[in-house]
């Protein structure tokens, strides 16, 4: 495993920890999109179907379990926890997330590495992950007071995607047989979606002012 990949996984892990920290300790999910969190839970459920069938490494298994458990825990907190759920900004989290699941499933059926159940679900999860951040970005645009933890959560999530691209470039030159076009193209699309956010995040950090995204 190369350094970019490890750094990517770690920033992904940090993003989840930041979000859980906010939800668990502050008992607030203000500014967090439940739609995005539900999509991530679906992404991991679809992608990690191979968890008990295909063993890669202990690291891989543990990380998969962590991402599965954390995504479902976050959804549970936002829907069921009696204090946390009251802080959910339902009025502004209006992205029609169900409507992006079906196109991703169709795309997974059409464009996959092999037409088997697991491969179709894998491709589906890759396409869905690429767009899963959209409800969160829309909610951020509509949020007047974006708190630091929410902004940091999205920042780390975006950083993870950027680092994965560096990881693929590295692997492309060091492992000649390593080519996954589906994850590369979807991954680049996913990273581009963060472009705007990164721009304003860095700007707010440089000028030491609160993050605000223009609508």
């Amino acid at each position: 495993m190369n350094l970019f990949r490890l750094a990517g996984d770690m920033t992904h892990l940090v993003s989840v920890v930041v979000l859980l920290l906010k939800i668990h300790t502050i008992k607030s999910c203000a500014g967090v999109s439940l739609k995005t969190q539900e999509l991530y839970a679906l992404v991991f459920a679809a992608r990690y179907l191979d968890l008990f069938v295909h063993f890669v490494s202990l690291y891989n298994t543990v990380m998969k379990l962590v991402f599965l458990a954390s995504s479902f825990t976050i959804v549970w907190y936002m829907r069921r926890h009696k204090i946390v759920r009251r802080t959910y900004d339902k009025e502004h989290d209006t992205f029609r997330h169900h409507f992006i699941v079906l196109p991703c499933l169709v795309l997974g059926l059409l464009l996959n590495e092999k037409f088997t159940f697991r491969e179709v679900m894998w491709a589906f999860s890759i396409y869905l992950e690429a767009v899963a951040i959209l409800p969160q970005l829309v909610l951020l645009q509509r949020t007047r007071n974006i708190d630091n933890l929410t902004a940091q959560y999205v920042f780390f999530l975006g950083a993870y995607r950027v680092l994965y691209i560096f990881n693929w470039i590295y692997r492309y030159f060091t492992e000649p047989h390593f080519v996954h076009w589906i994850s590369w193209i979807a991954g680049i699309v996913q990273t581009l979606l963060y472009g705007d956010f990164f721009y304003y995040y860095i700007l707010s950090w440089k000028n030491n002012v609160k993050l605000e995204l223009p609508a």
Binding site: H12, V56, S57, M63, E113, K114, H177, V179, W181, S183
Partner: peptide
């Protein structure tokens, strides 16, 4: 090839 490459990423 690509199709039989192990999916070792998360």
């Amino acid at each position: 090839g690509a199709a039989d490459g192990v999916k070792d990423e998360l």
